[in-house]
């Protein structure tokens, strides 16, 4: 299942979709990992959408960290529904807490014995459920909150290569990596 970000715009892509599929396929075969994992990486691609490069694409929706509707339990970053999708039953997953030094499971709420973390900007169950309402099976709430705090650089796929001389002159053999040094306009009068 390919998930979509809410209101997702066409993201900037370094490579064509077919090439990306190939790259993923190749990596998948090598690592012998289930395909599902790479479906998640497709979602990551959207998170690295680049703002307006050509003038006709708009930036991906930003995740607003000051959003008051962030639930108070945002330290539990794994949505159990996501885990079900991966065949992990709820009960086997201990609320993304910690294992303490005695091997006892500690929910992140209990950590330090302080109860609920004191979220300074209000926001409670009602607001959290409002967010939960936005989160359909296609847009897990974890994604709305930017759970995947990981950087992802799109895989490069082997395609055309530049001529030997052009490669040395540009500084890369790969046309898809060629960039232009941004030209800074000097202020008038200088």
């Amino acid at each position: 299942m390919r998930r979509q970000l809410p209101g997702s715009q066409k993201p900037f892509r370094l490579f064509r979709d077919s090439e990306r599929e190939l790259a993923h396929e190749q990596a998948r075969r090598r690592l012998r990992r289930p395909a599902q994992l790479y479906e998640d990486m497709q979602v990551d691609d959207k998170l690295v959408s680049s703002p307006d490069l050509t003038g006709n694409q708009s930036a991906a929706p930003a995740i607003d960290l000051s959003d008051r509707t962030r639930p108070t339990n945002d330290c539990c970053r794994v949505n159990p529904d996501d885990l079900l999708e991966h065949g992990v039953p709820h009960e086997s997953y201990p609320d993304a807490g910690f294992i303490d030094n005695q091997g006892k499971e500690v929910s992140c709420h209990e950590q330090g014995g302080q109860g609920e973390p004191d979220w300074p900007f209000g926001g409670g169950e009602a607001e959290a459920s409002q967010v939960a309402a936005q989160s359909t099976p296609d847009t897990p709430s974890s994604l709305i909150f930017g759970e995947l705090a990981t950087a992802y650089v799109p895989w490069q796929m082997f395609g055309q290569t530049l001529s030997l001389r052009d490669a040395l002159r540009t500084g890369t053999l790969f046309p898809e990596l060629v960039r232009t040094v941004p030209l800074y306009q000097k202020p008038p009068g200088t």
């Binding site: 082997f158 490669a167 053999l173």
Partner: peptide, 27 residues
């Protein structure tokens, strides 16, 4: 030699992260 060395360097770096890419290996 510089040109060839540069192409080989680029392909080497590419192959470090794409060791199964047969086309790159061939080149």
């Amino acid at each position: 030699i510089m040109e060839l060395q540069f192409a080989a360097t680029e392909l080497n770096l590419y192959l470090d992260t794409h060791p199964d890419d047969m086309r790159a290996l061939q080149e």
